[in-house]
Design a protein around this nucleic acid. Sequence first.
DNA 1: GTCTATACACAGATAGAC
DNA 2: GTCTATCTGTGTATAGAC
Lengths: 240, 240
Amino acid sequence: MNYAEFQQLVKVSKQDICRESFAENRKKIKVKKEKTVVKNLERIFDATLKISNEKGFQAMSMRDLSRETGLSLGALYGYFSSKEELLDMLQRQGRTITKRILEEHINSEVEPAAKLRMAIRTHLYLSEVMQPWFYFSYMETKNLTGSERKKALLSELYTEKIFASILKQGQEKGVFVSRDHQIGAGAIKAMLQDWYLKRRKYARRKVTVDRYASFVLEFVEAFYLTSNVTTQLFRLKTEG
Amino acid sequence: MNYAEFQQLVKVSKQDICRESFAENRKKIKVKKEKTVVKNLERIFDATLKISNEKGFQAMSMRDLSRETGLSLGALYGYFSSKEELLDMLQRQGRTITKRILEEHINSEVEPAAKLRMAIRTHLYLSEVMQPWFYFSYMETKNLTGSERKKALLSELYTEKIFASILKQGQEKGVFVSRDHQIGAGAIKAMLQDWYLKRRKYARRKVTVDRYASFVLEFVEAFYLTSNVTTQLFRLKTEG
DNA sequence: GTCTATACACAGATAGAC
DNA sequence: GTCTATCTGTGTATAGAC
């Protein structure tokens, strides 16, 4: 799985989910032609991400969104019934794609060390392709209300649990050193988040996804991988 | 330096800087009695942090702030001339305290490994005492404009540079393994940020600052500390 | 389906009494 | 110094023509 294939995969998923989402909300959405809905919903989502990531979702006015999408104020309200609903739809869509793709990839490995590598790489690739959504989701979760907020927070914890359970499994099998796996999972997640939250920094420094992925992996493996200790010793002896 | 002493230190610093800030902006601030200014400015700052961290600075209305501080709308404008200026003042104040305290502590150590430990511990303590400000600063930087935005971004990079230069120094002296110190500094900062951005998570799990600090240190040292490799080998032999 | 025009609420900010 | 009352702009959302 290389990066180009990954991009294609996400693009297909996006449209799939746009259609699914349309089917679910057929009653709420006034516009009835599926082709029109899918086309315009994607423009609306992209524009929302663009503007919100510049100045925040609250600060984005419907007039801003109208300008960016080329649709009038009235037309916009054919696709959602309130600004808050737009936020909910966008968050839901991203969560669905993320969950689907992460699970597919991680389940393709069974051995803990390989699973860990796959999970880290997949998450980085995914957040690279969908960077605007990841950033948006992180920054705007606090603006959600009620059940949508709950779901967003659960989804955040879900990713962390994936890493925690991989670490735990590896410890039980003896391939990982016995160290706090919950805080460790949080630390891994923090590093993965930095990739999409500080993307400009990494771009400026010309750090690629792959290089970042390698770094995170080495970092984590130096701490957790049992076999790594001997490797380090070897390096120490040969290098000086 | 324990946590209680640290709290006291920050509290004193806060009032100091409130007075300094008042001296600098004597022309802008309409209210003239220093005692009144320092007292009310602190209430205003605290209320702003409280409300903003719940729903964002943009979404906080001046009427919200009036309710929370107990001051009327008119009275509030005696302390700043616009909502944006309030944001700038608050960000500036936090940056000043942070920089001052971080530098004081880090400069008290010279040896790289000790300096690294001190830097990590101090940053965690500081962000624990000033958690509302750290969270606020992170979330609202994008709402700043012009020179204030620039200063905030520079200040963010400044912290990272501290870690990068400690790592580099250690590598030159041979106490740290030769590995990317720039990405490493970013990773350390990401973990430190997680502490104040996800504070509720850690509180729920009953993870204390000290335990988190120890974890981060062990994690980082496993990767960078030259001498650690032999320690790990020893542990591996004795534990199984 | 999409447009323009507009209703209505609420935001930030100020004036002037006390 | 602080209050209440108010000005003016802008926000979300809808109505009704095309």
